[in-house]
């Protein structure tokens, strides 16, 4: 059934779909990154499709290949029990793609992780901070050109507090924290 969904998608978005595949039983469509939000909205909201759950969001770095990155969205329809995978290519020069946090709640953290690990920026994301690593980390460790044993510069202990504490001071108490960046 999910193979038919991909065909349906192909008929609806003739120009936007670059490629489709069903290798190893995984129905996949490669779409342009400009049309991503439109395609996902269609998949989520169409009566006959109902892909209402975002199973997984990740990115693959194909170094030395153009376009270098592929952002991967595994969607699932809980009611129809079907899965499709949507991929969108992202180039190294312009590592930006539209955020889908308004379509799927879990995309918020998942996109933060992809930003953290691969340095893909999600346009429109409300809170694109690093999630697993710390703010001062230099580079994006899951990029293939990041050496596994690469060392990080020593972080001077900040006199300022960060993140939630800083925000609290600024917005709730009306006074910025010491050394605040806000």
């Amino acid at each position: 059934m999910s193979a038919e969904d991909i065909k349906r998608l192909g008929r609806k978005f003739r120009k936007e779909i670059i490629d489709t595949s069903d290798r190893l039983g995984m129905d996949t469509a490669l779409v342009t990154k400009e049309s991503l939000v439109e395609v996902l909205t269609y998949l989520r909201d169409d009566e006959k499709l109902q892909y209402n759950m975002l199973r997984h969001l990740t990115c693959v770095d194909y170094l030395h290949r153009e376009p270098r990155f592929e952002v991967v969205y595994a969607l699932y329809s809980v009611s129809r029990r079907q899965q499709v995978v949507i991929k969108a290519p992202v180039t190294e020069d312009d590592p930006v793609i539209d955020s889908i946090h308004h379509l799927y709640g879990c995309a918020n953290w998942a996109e933060r992780e992809v930003w953290d690990m691969y340095g893909i920026r999600f346009k429109g994301h409300p809170d694109l901070r690093r999630i697993l690593l710390y703010e001062e980390f230099e580079g994006h460790p899951l990029r293939k050109d990041y050496e596994k044993q690469a060392s990080q510069p020593r972080v001077e202990l900040l006199r300022a507090e960060r993140d939630a504490f800083e925000e609290f001071k600024t917005y709730h108490l009306g006074e910025p924290a010491e050394g605040s960046r806000v």
């Binding site: 997984h56 990740t58 693959v60 770095d61 709640g105 879990c106 918020n108 953290w109 998942a110 992780e113």
Partner: peptide, 16 residues
């Protein structure tokens, strides 16, 4: 492996 990415249930359960 070129890439091993984990969809860990805890990550998505903690998100909200």
């Amino acid at each position: 492996p070129w890439k091993v990415s984990i969809r860990s249930p805890s990550f998505y359960n903690m998100c909200p």
